[in-house]
Each structure stands twice: as structure tokens, then as C-alpha cells.
Nucleic acid binder design. Sequence first.
RNA 1: UGGGCGAUCGUCUAAUGGUAGGACAGUGCCCUUUGGAGGCACUUGUCUAGGUUCGAAUCCUAGUCGCCCAGCCA
Length: 568
Amino acid sequence: MTNGNPETQDVRTISNFLRDQIAEDVRTKKYGDAEVQTRFPPEPNGYLHIGHAKAICLDFGLADEFGGKTNLRFDDTNPEKEEQEYVDSIQADVRWLGFEWDRLCYASDYFGQLYEWALQLIKAGKAYVDDLTADEIRQHRGTLTEPGKDSPYRNRSVEENLDLFVRMKNGEFPDGSRVLRARIDMASPNLNMRDPVMYRILHATHHRTGDAWCIYPMYDYAHGQSDSIERVTHSMCTLEFTDHQPLYRWYIEQLGIFPSQQIEFDRLNLTYTLLSKRKLLQLVQEKHVSGWDDPRMPTLSGIRRRGFTPEAIRTFCAAIGASRTNGTTDIEMLEHFQRDDLNRRARRAMAVLRPLKLVIDNYPAGQEELFEVANNPEDPAAGMRQVPFTGEVYIEQDDFREVPPPKYYRLSPGKEVRLRGAYFVTAQSVVKDADGNIVEVHCTYDPASRGGSSPDGRKVKSTIHWVSTAHAISAEVRIYDKLFTKADPGDVEEGESFLSNLNPDSLEILNDAKLEPSLASAKVEERFQFERVGYFCLDRDSTAGKLVFNRTLPLKDSWAKIEKKAGG
RNA sequence: UGGGCGAUCGUCUAAUGGUAGGACAGUGCCCUUUGGAGGCACUUGUCUAGGUUCGAAUCCUAGUCGCCCAGCCA
């Protein structure tokens, strides 16, 4: 599944309390000889994001480690928020991440069974129909510090409850008029146990069951039993469900069904990143981004389009582990694992993002050469390619300074550098426009340095990339940066929203980047390292006449660091 | 202020009563036909106070701080 590099393997075997728990249960045969069974249970009401990737890696990864299986189960108990579009995208994203489920399930598959069990609880005096309004139920629930009060309908007879519940199911009552509640303990210090609602009336069309039902089970009433039906042994979920565990167990115990167990772990938080479905939806709806798959979004479809790889995401998830502490992982951690993966696998190419013409005055007019360069110095198996060279090339504007600052190793008047894989060149003069901007640099080359090294053993401080002007293909390059300016996007002044932390420079479009000709055959989603610049992938907006590349991540830039230090 | 959960380098995470380790970030050096990558080195940590123990990050007590819970959402 993952490649065999040492780092990946190290990271995969980091212990965590979930693995320990499963190992213990297997050792003690808590579930007899049953194999480990897990599930990933998203509600199809939005797109999956990097936080879900952590859960997916845990659910699928741990089951796999123990030779068990994982179901993909849609927790589709609220027809008002759920759509087929999300069901489809979630499946695509899970597969993209590299996981295949054992069974594809839906909580809605169990509506019939859940209903039968509700009848059973009513007959046992463990559930009742309540006619209180939502407001009244809230008032009766009490507060964090005060116990709740019994509903006046709490002691209806079994017969009356049965009659009313059947009629609820038959559609005799309007939305909100009644609910079915579990009869537990209105004085419990755990609010979830104060007679939680099991069913509400919702005359809504469900994306799968259509209009077959007008009562829908609540999460708490559906989740544990769904786990139980699927014989899930380890039901892993995030920490905020810890308070629900007693209720999860209560339903299973009352019903006497397969004892699935819930184990909670901490949710992923990332610096400079928002992982709230509600806020992500707002970004999409208010068009602060182009859609769920905008390359700046933390959705799996977004970071996929950005150029991130499933391998790197999985390695990242393994590296951050799982615990029960509430922390925030530095986004640089994710970026590190992504660079690490791409460095090993991405084909290299030369691309000049902000072109400056370099004219080699002593290069024979009209001459053209092909230089052979490695597709990936990290991976000899990637082979070589030929790059055309002429007496006029584009170099990066940043790679020339008329007045070089201290420690600047690149091209400047009188300085010699290497054009990668080609020749040593020495800058001689500049041509400026009427405004004094440098529009052209003239240089001379050393014909003896063909291939990039001089027979006299002379060294140059710097190697820069280039693209022959005669062969360059123009492209659009989209430079993405963090979507938010603050490590905690939710950290705002009184009265402001997270939107005020939006980074106004999160997208910069470069319209006239110059690429080496081999890039013409790039495929959508194909990833490259543009040497000395960063990692890029071809966007699906590309057309035959116009390539569009997304910058996944810049390369680490130690010159930028030096410059920043000197400047600040 | 009721209940629950938690607290280890700046960050994430190991150590399961017996040497506080790794990764990210940072710093310095080496190397380099990518100021990339790589190599080496360095810096920094057990929330506090008591207790148990030959020995405590780990167990106990109290405190402090943080997160979660009062949807007919999940």
C-alpha cells in the first residue's frame, strides 16, 4: 500500500493507545475469534477534509494491521442536510486516499431494524412518545448544574406509546409535533442521558429511502446499533462524542445486541487551516474560494487539485499519531511529508515563472544544442531527457541583480554562474527600458564548460535554471499561499469573523511563465518539480493551447531566509 | 459554577514503575551541476504542591490550566 521507504515504515509503527487497545482485545479474545471490524462513518453533508483523512487512516489502517476489515458507512439519518453529491465525492475521496472498504453501508439500510428495536424498547417501558415542543423539551432538560424535570408524558402506557409511535411512523402527525424519547434519567449529570430523543418527525425526502419514512432516528439512536449490526468491534470517533458513550452502551445493553465499543481520539487541528464544515461551506457559498476543490481548501478534493499525494497524506497521518490531547499540528509538518514524497518521485523540469531575457553575446548565431539532463536526480530509474539550448534564454528575474546584496550567489555584472546542465556564463551588461527596468541581460559563455563543468576545475557559486526563448512554451501558473494570515484563523477581534483573517494574497496568477518544451505533454494532475522553484501539477483548467499549473508547495528557500534576516 | 476528558521540547508524539526518545520547526557546519535533497552536530521538555516507592512522566491526593456537553444536527 505505501512505498517501502524507511521513514514511512518508522512512522507507521509509532504506537498509540488505539492500536494498544485493539492489540489487547485481540490478545484477550474480547470478541472471541471474530476479526477486527471498524467503520468510517461520514455524514454525506459535505466534502471530506484533511481531518477526515486522519480518521480514515486510523479506521482503515488499524483494521488492516490486525487483518480486519473496514466498512464505509454513510450516517445518513438527517435527510435535510444530505445529498447524493456528497455520497459520491466521499467515495471518490476515500478511494483516492488509497483505501478500499469491505462493505458499503448506509445507516438508512437499518431504518427498518431500528424501528423494530424502538417498538421493543417501548414495550419494555424504556421509551415513550413525548408531545412537548422542542422549546419545552429544552426547558425540561435542566442545565449543566440543575437536574431536568420529567415530561408530563413520560408515564404514558405502553399501549398508548405503541399506538402513537406507529401513527408517527404512518405520517399522521406534522413535523415537530411529537418525538420518541428513551426513558432513562432526567437527573443524570450527563445531559445525553436525560431522556434523549430517539426519533423525530420529518416529512422530508431522503436521498436514498425517498418518502418511505417520515420519522428519522437521531445519531445516538442509530450509530451504536448500526455498529452492532455490522459487528463493528472498534468504533473509533472523535473526542466530542465521549459524553455520548454511556448512551451508546445503554442502547446496546437494553437491546442485548452485539457489543460494539466506542473509542475516542482527538480531532486534527492544523495551523492556518479551518476544518469546520460550516465555515468551509461558507467560504464556498460566499465565493471566497472557487469551490470545494479550490486548491486552497483543506478538503481532500482541494489538496488533491493542489497537487498533494495520497501517500504523503497517509504518511503525515501516521506521523502525527493519535492521542486524547487537544493540540494543533503545525501545517509545516504536512508540508514536510509532501515535499519529502514529491522530492523522491516528481519529475524535474525547468520553468521560469517571472522571465528575464538573457542574451549570450558570444554564442554562435543560429546555433542550437540539446543537453541531456536527469529527470530526477533522486531516482536514476526516472531516466534522462533532452532540453534544447540556444543563445537566448529566459532566466528568473530573481536570479539577476544589478547590485548584488551580500551573500547573493546568483548572476550579477561580472559574476559567473552555471546555466543548469549547459554552460558557465558571465554577466556583462544590462538593457533597460525608459523607466529604468532591466529588460535584458547580456552575458558571455565559456564554450569549454559544455555540460556544466569546466575542465580547469573552476567552481561557480550558483546554478540557475533557464528555458530557451525559441523553444519555450508559455503557461499560466497559479501560485497558492495560505488561505489565512493567522495560525489560528478563528482568532479575531471582537465583532469580526474568521473572514477578516483571509489572506488577500493567497492566490497569485502568473500569466506568462516560460516552460521547457517537454512539459507540453504533461497530463492533468501530473506532478513536477520545477527545479529551484517548487512542486507543481497540471490543473484540469488546462486546454490544448494553454497549460495551467498549480503550485503545490515552494521548495525550501534558504536564500529567502538569508535575505529576510538581512532585511529585517 | 454539574459532569466528562486531558496536560511530556516552540509543535506533534513515544517511553505501559527502571537511561525522557523520535519527527517537524530552529541554529551551526559539511556536501552539492537545484541556496533543493543529503550528512553531522547543537539547543529546548515531564503543569504545580504533597504522597506511595529502593526508584515516579507513569500510581494516589489536592490544586491549576485547557477542551467538550444544555439540537427534534452529526
